[in-house]
């Protein structure tokens, strides 16, 4: 890697870290200010909406299979249904995820 690439890598790494940490510092200061005033202020409304919509968007984007064949789409649909069904029963994270991967995997191996 030439020197320009190392500089670019450093800027991107530092920039990405700052994108993650500066909003935390900003929010922590806001929370401390409100604490001093004796009020407990939650994060701004728009942020509490944008957080879950971000996760939902990641969910939607991650649904597209690496090789989007008919079998992969069927496997995705059934894997999701299995995940949801186990989640309804257990209300946990691990087992539903594992079941979803298993169902998806079985269909891909058999028909993919």
């Amino acid at each position: 890697m030439n020197q320009d690439l190392w500089v670019a890598l450093f800027i991107i790494a530092a920039g990405t870290y700052l994108l993650r940490v500066i909003p935390l510092i900003w929010m922590q200061r806001k929370l401390i200010q409100h604490e001093k005033k004796g009020s407990v202020k939650p994060p701004p409304d728009w942020l509490t909406v944008l957080g879950p919509t971000m996760i939902s968007a990641m969910f939607g984007a991650s649904l597209v299979p690496a090789h989007p064949t008919f079998a992969a789409w069927v496997a995705t649909a059934l894997g999701m249904l299995a995940t949801l069904a186990v989640w309804f029963r257990t209300r946990s994270m691990g087992l539903p995820t594992l079941t979803g991967v298993f169902v998806f995997g079985v269909i891909i191996v058999l028909f993919g």
Partner: peptide, 28 residues
């Protein structure tokens, strides 16, 4: 081919509890 499916399954489990009313279900 198979293991990356863990991510959408995990996201689904994280999104599902929030869908407890019409407003959030339609939004998400």
């Amino acid at each position: 081919d198979v293991l990356p499916f863990a991510l959408p399954a995990l996201f689904l489990v994280l999104v599902a509890p929030r869908c407890n009313n019409r407003l959030w279900t339609l939004t998400l």
